[in-house]
Design a protein around this nucleic acid. Structure first.
Lengths: 196, 196
DNA sequence: GTCTATACGAAGATAGAC
DNA sequence: GTCTATCTTCGTATAGAC
């Protein structure tokens, strides 16, 4: 358990701050303070400045969530994995008093000044969709249908997290999760695809 | 067709700028320039400064979309109304080169410094959900189910718009719209509720 | 209601020492 | 790799004249 290098800590801190306060409000000062990284080395680690940090943080967040998806889909069927994911979001919302959202969404919304970060966000969404779509397609669903179901799941959960933050309640997420699980369990064939 | 007063023009401009650049990047200078409103009267019209402007813009955007929902649901069934709405979003995305999103979402994400705006966003989401839920419940669906379907629709569309912006493509929105229409048309009873 | 001028702070970024 | 100092720009907000 070696301590991660400053660069990595800054990236993690940036992702955490972005998901709570947005990209614009995630200043270098805030990242320095949160990560405990040395002040003087920002432009050593990120020569292109903030745009580079934001892009790296977006990519990092995308990777973390993708890894979670891979793990969840590897040990259970899509419906159970979805259930676990919405549970994790519930915990994140409650633990942060509804301040924390998704860093990838933050990068998308303020992406007009960081095209690279926005593209990284688009790539992250695509990877999540593909992971989900492949898992769904393994259960006797056509690839096209699996893809549109996967997009719906990703979009609906991201949207539900936003509504939940605005209303300071997990109820919207609960309702969305219920509908998604109902739809998914009614569409896929539980018998197929089971390598579990 | 009288020209709206400066205050109203500033509110509209703020909403337009917020949906493209976010709350933080919507500066007074930008609002002044976009609206053509007089510089010196900002704090005359908005004594509480930017927080007040952002709250007003969020409320305004919520009202505009709610009015659109009322109109669409008044002249057609929920499925057709949904179709019209996603079409409108497609146009907004394409016309803005995928820069424009939803001002209410923007207010939610950067709502840690404008609690009033965030609350207005939560209220807007709730009204949209209620409008949709009532319309769905009129078609032989239980109120609880109608509510969760309505939340899913709102969340999924907002999420799809975000994914579409990140990927600079309307495809995600197309897939989500297709799934939502399929789900909705398969759940509601077209014969019921028809005052059309 | 609208103007100009200005105070004040914070942000991103650069330069040069160590 | 990390430090400090500094430049520049831009933001919100206020004061006081018209």
């Amino acid at each position: 358990m070696t301590r991660p290098d400053p660069r990595q800590r800054m990236i993690q801190s940036a992702a955490l701050l972005m998901r709570e306060h947005g990209v614009e409000a995630t200043s270098f000062s805030a990242v320095i303070e949160h990560s405990g990284a040395p002040r003087g080395s920002i432009y050593h680690h990120f020569p292109n400045g903030k745009a580079e940090l934001v892009e790296a943080a977006t990519r990092y967040a995308g990777d973390v969530i993708a890894a979670g998806l891979v793990a969840a889909l590897g040990r259970s069927d899509p419906v159970a994995a979805l259930h676990g994911f919405t549970n994790a979001w519930r915990a994140t919302l409650a633990d942060s008093d509804f301040a924390a959202g998704c860093p990838v969404v933050a990068a998308t919304l303020e992406g007009d000044r960081s095209p690279a970060a926005r593209d990284a966000a688009g790539g992250a969404f695509d990877r999540w969709e593909t992971l989900l779509a492949d898992a769904i397609a393994a259960h006797a669903v056509t690839p096209e249908r699996a893809r549109s179901l996967a997009t719906l799941v990703v979009a609906a959960i991201e949207g539900a997290v936003i509504v939940a933050r605005a209303q300071r309640s997990t109820d919207p997420l609960d309702r969305v999760a219920g509908e998604l699980e109902l739809l998914l369990s009614g569409t896929i064939d539980p018998a197929a695809g089971g390598s579990h």
